[in-house]
Nucleic acid binder design. Structure first.
Lengths: 144, 144
DNA sequence: GTGAACGTTGACGTTAATGTTACATTAGTG
DNA sequence: CACTAATGTAACATTAACGTCAACGTTCAC
């Protein structure tokens, strides 16, 4: 039936009810339909979006503001899918799409940089580990 | 001379003076020497540590509390480097080091998971980009 | 149709991580 | 030594991202 109440959504998305309302409040989750009495009824898309929000946030550690930006992009593309007949509109749309692609490219390089950073931290940790291991070895040698 | 005042340190580490004092306050930066009047004098190690803190924080998005843990680990290893003569102490130390290594392994798997997550997000973005590009192509085809 | 469980709004609380401001001392400079 | 720039402490302010609680309306299973 596609009609989830907030408790269900919380369960499935792994977020709290408060958080879900908060996300709606700050505009990163589109307001769902309401019942007569005001109860929120969500659908699959809401849940999917929330999952992706959580995932992306966890992965990149972005602020919600930055996430907003992220989500806006994917919505923009959706909205551009319709094809227009007028050449003028088409040109305009192509421009829009090209600029979206630019933005995406920027995001992608940011992500790559982030991966590099993390890999450097990983190296640091690996070195730490090696040092610890070599200290142990030293002990073993001393032990005659 | 190795005697940097806080302004220098702020510049080199990319943190603000306030933040540097704060880090000292909460214990993730060891208190530097002070002049007669109380002025803090830092050395290279402080700066290096601050840089690493910033770097790690940026990369992993850790809270300062988690970072504290991280730093504690590397200090622990340093402190274990001295070799002890008594077998008893040596055994104890080996245990300690082994448990440090365990912890490091845990951190490392966490980091690897994080990288995987980020790569999934990257994929998402790449798909978005592809979709945008295919919409553009559709336009080009329509344009006869 | 009624009571328990659930939902809503609103407001205030919380924590981390600083920013900001005020005011007192101290440190370098001509 | 006088002056200015830098530093110190202290305390209050702020922002994000929720948590918590109160007061009250809604749903739903029986």
């Amino acid at each position: 039936m596609d009609n989830y109440k907030i408790d269900q959504v919380a369960l499935q998305s792994g977020l709290t009810k408060r958080t879900i309302r908060y996300y709606e409040e700050i505009g990163i989750l589109p307001p769902p339909k309401r019942s007569e009495g005001g109860t929120r009824y969500y659908n699959e898309e809401h849940i999917e979006l929330l999952k992706r929000i959580k995932y992306t946030k966890d992965a990149l550690g972005l602020s919600l503001e930055e996430l907003q930006h992220f989500i806006a992009l994917s919505n923009l593309i959706e909205s551009q899918k319709v094809s227009f007949k007028q050449t003028a509109e088409r040109t305009e749309q192509r421009e829009k799409l090209l600029s979206i692609i630019d933005t995406l490219d920027e995001e992608l390089t940011l992500i790559e940089q982030k991966i590099l950073k993390i890999e450097r931290v990983k190296e640091d940790l690996t070195n730490l580990k090696k040092r610890a291991q070599s200290v142990i070895e030293k002990f073993n040698l001393e032990e005659v």
